[in-house]
């Protein structure tokens, strides 16, 4: 077993079993804000107990261990082929250990061979950079929240949404309304304004690599993020859609250039069981530092 394989199995274990600190903090703050004695409050209490128990037992926070998405930032000359092969082996091993559910199904035959490896699974995104650092982030994104993601094409006559920021606001809030509790709220939105149908969703997901508390450096987008968060939490959807004060924990928005003919707004929804971790690897592929 290589050091890289060991490190990736450990990254998968910790991502599956432990909520990052920034998310846990946001959940605890929301619990305090919910009205006492409501089912929203009791939902939060079960969520809090679950976070503790998963960490203590080193078991998956949620049984849907999700799409396995690696983001690798690596120096020039990094062996991407070996990394990807090792990541596939690490995923299969982590599945045997029960850190991941047997979660990958052949779309044509319906067969689940139990390995979690197949066409498109896991996904590995490589990005070369000038630094010598090897940074590996991992996101496990469950199917329930993936299913409530939405992509809008502006203008939308039905939602009276034009090709401007107000139109973006309208469709993003519509996505929150349509999602209700189905994506295991309170959720976090990742949004991309622009791009094409594929890159729009891709960039919207990458927003989940940002921490809950960080602020958007672009003032217009920052204002939109804060506005959506505040407005969504006034709708009364609440945790699990039970009604209550906390519908979203955070909103993260980016923009990408578009074609003159297209104006997509792509919205990804992340459940409260927000599984995201990352590591800096040493030259020997040992874990040097945890990112979240």
């Amino acid at each position: 077993m290589s050091d890289l394989q060991d490190s990736l199995v450990e990254l998968i274990r910790r991502t599956s079993a432990e909520i990052p600190d920034d998310v846990q903090k946001a959940i605890l703050t929301s619990l305090e804000n919910e009205k006492k004695g409501t089912i929203a409050e009791s939902a939060f209490k079960i969520i809090e107990a679950n976070i503790k128990l998963a960490k203590q037992k080193s078991q998956p926070i949620c049984q849907d261990t999700g799409s396995i998405i690696f983001y690798v930032e690596c120096p020039v000359g990094f062996d991407q082929i070996t990394f990807e092969e090792t990541a596939r082996t690490a995923v299969t091993l982590a599945t045997k250990k029960g850190y991941l559910r047997q979660n990958s199904v052949d779309s044509l035959t319906g067969k689940n061979d139990g390995t979690n490896v197949g066409p498109g699974a896991p996904t590995v995104h490589f990005h070369q950079h000038r630094s010598s650092e090897i940074k590996v982030s991992l996101m496990l994104k469950g199917g329930g929240c993936e299913n409530v993601g939405a992509q809008y094409s502006l203008p939308s006559e039905k939602l009276k949404a034009n090709r401007d920021l107000d139109g973006c606001r309208k469709v993003i809030l519509d996505a929150v309304l349509q999602a209700q509790g189905k994506g295991c709220g309170p959720g976090i939105l990742g949004v991309c304004i622009g791009g094409d149908r594929a890159t729009g969703y891709e960039y919207s997901k990458q927003q989940f690599l940002r921490t809950i508390e960080d602020r958007n450096p672009n003032q217009e987008l920052d204002a939109l993020e804060q506005d959506i968060l505040k407005t969504a939490n006034e709708l009364g959807i609440g945790p699990m859609g039970f009604g209550g004060k906390t519908t979203l924990l955070g909103v993260k928005i980016c923009a990408a250039n578009r074609l003159p003919a297209s104006f997509f707004v792509s919205i990804s929804y992340m459940c409260w069981a927000y599984r995201r971790q990352g590591v800096i690897l040493s030259n020997e592929s040992k874990i040097e530092k945890w990112l979240y």
Partner: peptide
């Protein structure tokens, strides 16, 4: 309605697996 994502709290309430059916046919989940 059970609490979505609360896989550990709910697994604690499961005391045993009595049987499994259609495991080959449909896969574990």
């Amino acid at each position: 309605h059970a609490i979505g994502g609360a896989a550990q709290v709910l697994a604690e309430c499961i005391k045993s697996v009595r049987n499994v059916y259609f495991l080959e046919k449909f896969g574990s989940p």
